[in-house]
Structures are given as structure tokens and as C-alpha cells.
């Protein structure tokens, strides 16, 4: 079937089986391999994408569920900019090791900061509790989200 949606800011349509997993569609047909797969059953969060700004697991979604939605993957997070403040902070704060969880982690953090621009460390941990990381012990990821939140507030103040 024909499915229409917005992918990283661009109107897109594709003819595919309605029950194709979104993660496969995005990785294989669109080449968006920044989306990772770690379990295929909604336990690890590495396949996180944003659907209308909300944090969703693309391994548990079927293509038909994309109809009319706006999807952001890690590849589209920075938009026109070279890097999103979260991406910049993840590097600077040492939140990246093997990096396999990073795209999902960053998108989950993006969804959090949209809802709560000034989260506490505890709130950050809670918001990221669906995204597993086996390398970092999470501390530097929390540091990075805090730093990005501050940077984004500053940007907003400047713009405002």
C-alpha cells in the first residue's frame, strides 16, 4: 500500500507492505542505518525514533502506522545545523563509547527536553530508563543531557 509521511522534514511516500516493520523500512529502504536494532522486542530502546515528536520504538511499529505522521531519526535531528546540542553534548561529555545506543538515547533525550526543558538528573534517568546502554554506566549520558538542556535554554534566551 501507499504510505505517506514526513521523514526528517521531507514529505515522503512509499509503496510497501503495511506490516513491514518500521525499523526495516527505514534502515533498508531509506538507508537510515543510524537507527539500530538491539533486541527486536521493545526492551532495549536502541531503535528509538520520534513520531510527531514523541519517543517511539521502531522495532514495534508497522509501516501502516506511519501514515500521516512526522518522523525524526538521528539523521534528521540536527536539521539545518551541523549538530543538535544533544549530539554536541554527548561527544563533549563522553557519553559515547561503542555508540550503538547513542542514536536512540539522544532521541529519547530530545523527547524529554521537549516536554521538560529543565529536568533534574533523576528525571533524566527516568526518561532514559527504557534505553539500555552496556558501556557507560549512564552517568556521562545524564551529564550530557543536562549540558544540552542548559545549552538549549541559552539558545532560546538568545533567540527570545
Amino acid at each position: 500500500m501507499i504510505i505517506r509521511f514526513v521523514l526528517n522534514g521531507e514529505e515522503t511516500q512509499i509503496d510497501c507492505a503495511p506490516d513491514r516493520r518500521v525499523i526495516d523500512l527505514l534502515r533498508e529502504d531509506f538507508g537510515l542505518t543510524g537507527i539500530k536494532e538491539g533486541c527486536g522486542s521493545g526492551e532495549c530502546g536502541t531503535c528509538t525514533i520520534l513520531v510527531d515528536g514523541e519517543n517511539r520504538l521502531s522495532c514495534l511499529m508497522l509501516a501502516v502506522q506511519l501514515e500521516g505522521k512526522s518522523i525524526t531519526t538521528i539523521e534528521g535531528l540536527a536539521g539545518e545545523n551541523r549538530q543538535h546540542p544533544l549530539q554536541e553534548a554527548f561527544i563533549r561529555c563522553g557519553a559515547v563509547q561503542c555508540g550503538y545506543c547513542s542514536p536512540g538515547m539522544i532521541l529519547a533525550a530530545r523527547a524529554l527536553l521537549t516536554e521538560n526543558p529543565e529536568p533534574t538528573r533523576e528525571q533524566i534517568r527516568e526518561a532514559l530508563s527504557g534505553n539500555l546502554c552496556r558501556c557507560t554506566g549512564y552517568q556521562k549520558i545524564v551529564d550530557a543531557v543536562e549540558a544540552a538542556a542548559r545549552a538549549m535554554q541559552k539558545q532560546k534566551e538568545k533567540a527570545g
Binding site: 542505518t33 543510524g34 537507527i35 531519526t73 538521528i74 549530539q87 555508540g99 542514536p103
Partner: peptide, 14 residues
């Protein structure tokens, strides 16, 4: 900063 950091956070790293 990690030499592989930028490519990993942007999703480019293969």
C-alpha cells in the same frame, strides 16, 4: 573528544 564520536552521534558510523 573521541575520534569516533561525531560519526557515532550523527548515525553515520557504519
Amino acid at each position: 573528544p573521541r575520534a569516533d564520536g561525531e560519526a557515532k552521534v550523527s548515525g553515520e558510523e557504519k
